[in-house]
Simulated scan of single mutants.
Amino acid sequence: MAQQWMMEFLIGLGKMFSHPIFYFAFFACIFMGYLRVKRERKDFNIRAQNGYFELRNLLPAGLVIGGILSILTVALGITVPFAAIILAEALTFLILLTLKFRLLSPVYTLGLTFFIVFFTYNQHIEVPIFSSAFKNLEPIYPSIPFLMGLLLVVEGLLISRNAYKGTSPKMITSKRGLPAGVHVSRRLWMVPFFVFLPTGELSSPFEWWPVLQGPGSTQFTPIVIPFLIGFSQQVQGLLPKVSIKMNGNRVITLGVIVTLVAMGGYWYPLLSIAAVALGLLGRESITFYQRLFEERLPFYFSYRDRGVMILGIIPNSPAEKMGLEIGEIVTKVNGVPVNNKKQFYEALMKNRAHCKLEVLDSNDQIRFVQRALFEGEHHELGILFVQQQKRGKQEAV
């Protein structure tokens, strides 16, 4: 029996590579990176991260969390109908085409899937081509709402621990017509994890297993779903790390609440519907509140009367090696006060072999950083500044 289970799990793992979404996600990341680089070059004449940055973030974090999630889904025996997987993939594909990555939250893909399957099941609607997949739909609750709650927690963890890294600087014009900087975070994560289909060759190894299944399910097939979670946020009133972590923590809290309510659906099915509705309303409220909160704040990355604000740091540049961070203000270069890019460059040229900066950090504390400069580095420190210009284009220093 153990050998049969092992073989079925290996087959289920292999089926992940038959999902079109698995491959489409790679193309989406490459295209997302292309658009970002194109915009950054337009704003700064240089890109911040290379075009494969989004692709490098697609799998690593998701694989670890997906492994942990699989342990839980297998232990509980979370069973979902094949129809739900088809619908979730179709919705994911349509959202990817729109490039609205924030809509790839589990509350939208799984939440809408739940209501579509629930409506189809209760109305006895015949679905062409996939009619066999829509026959056994009872496992949608409490399994799908519970799974949605777990994935909402996963989304929050990914946001708070990953989404603030490597945010993309962007220049915009404020309502007063002045240039200002913002940071944009756009992510696509793949979280592969196991679930069970209510059909197949495997029977329950324990009397209490599976915990979350529909009535009448006695045979099961494990399958890996390459689930996609997207995120998009523009930060303008706070440091990216602060704002994005705050947003992620709110999503984690919502996910915990939705999961707890969904657990009640095991005894009271109406709570499954309430959990999905709560997830949809709660996630949309978090997005709306975050936007409203930041719009009321003054632009964090804006022109300052004293010094020049660091909007971005080019990876592996001298500026990064000096420990400079976005949001800091360079007030002096080689002992000379600076207020714009021209003054910064002129002060830098006074000593071609050494660079000493006086920096005001995000806590209004002054610190000094210095570094020997090699030939050509005084032209390419790798700093993107916010400054007043008649033209909309900024340049890296």
Rank of each mutant, 00 (worst) to 15 (best):
M1P: 11
Q3K: 15
Q4H: 10
W5Y: 14
L10C: 06
L10M: 14
I11R: 15
L13T: 06
G14V: 13
P20H: 08
P20Y: 10
F22S: 05
F22A: 08
A28Y: 09
I30S: 01
I30R: 13
Y34N: 04
V37F: 08
R39K: 13
N45K: 14
I46Y: 10
Q49W: 06
N50V: 04
N50S: 13
Y52H: 09
L55F: 12
L55T: 11
R56P: 02
N57R: 10
L58M: 10
L58K: 03
L58T: 01
L59C: 12
G62C: 03
V64T: 09
I65V: 14
I68C: 13
L69Q: 00
L72C: 01
T73L: 01
V74F: 06
T79Q: 01
V80S: 01
I95K: 08
L96C: 09
L99N: 11
L103H: 10
L104V: 14
S105W: 04
T109W: 02
G111R: 00
G111P: 04
G111E: 06
T113D: 02
F115V: 09
I116M: 14
T120S: 11
Y121Q: 13
Q123L: 15
Q123A: 15
P128A: 12
F130D: 07
F130L: 14
A133K: 05
E138V: 07
Y141A: 09
Y141K: 14
Y141G: 12
P142H: 03
V153I: 15
V153F: 12
G156D: 07
L157V: 14
P169V: 15
K170C: 01
M171C: 02
I172N: 07
I172L: 12
K175Y: 01
H183N: 10
S185R: 07
R187C: 12
L188H: 01
M190E: 03
V191E: 01
V191G: 00
P192W: 00
L197I: 14
G200T: 08
E201R: 14
F206D: 04
E207A: 13
W208Q: 09
W209L: 03
P210G: 01
V211C: 02
L212D: 00
L212G: 01
Q213E: 09
G214F: 00
S217M: 09
I223A: 01
P226F: 08
P226R: 10
G230M: 08
F231M: 05
Q233T: 05
L239T: 12
P240E: 10
V242H: 10
V251A: 15
T253A: 15
T253E: 11
I257F: 06
V258E: 11
V258N: 02
T259N: 08
L260S: 03
A262H: 05
A262E: 03
M263N: 10
G265K: 04
L270P: 00
S272T: 11
I286P: 13
I286E: 02
I286H: 10
T287A: 06
L297R: 15
Y303G: 00
D305N: 15
R306W: 08
G307E: 03
G307R: 03
M309V: 14
N316P: 00
S317F: 02
E320Q: 14
E320I: 06
M322T: 03
M322Q: 06
G323W: 12
L324S: 01
V333H: 04
P337I: 09
N339K: 15
N339A: 07
K342C: 02
F344N: 00
K350M: 12
K356V: 10
L360N: 05
I366H: 15
V369Y: 09
L373V: 12
E375F: 07
G382H: 04
G382W: 04
R391C: 01
A396G: 05
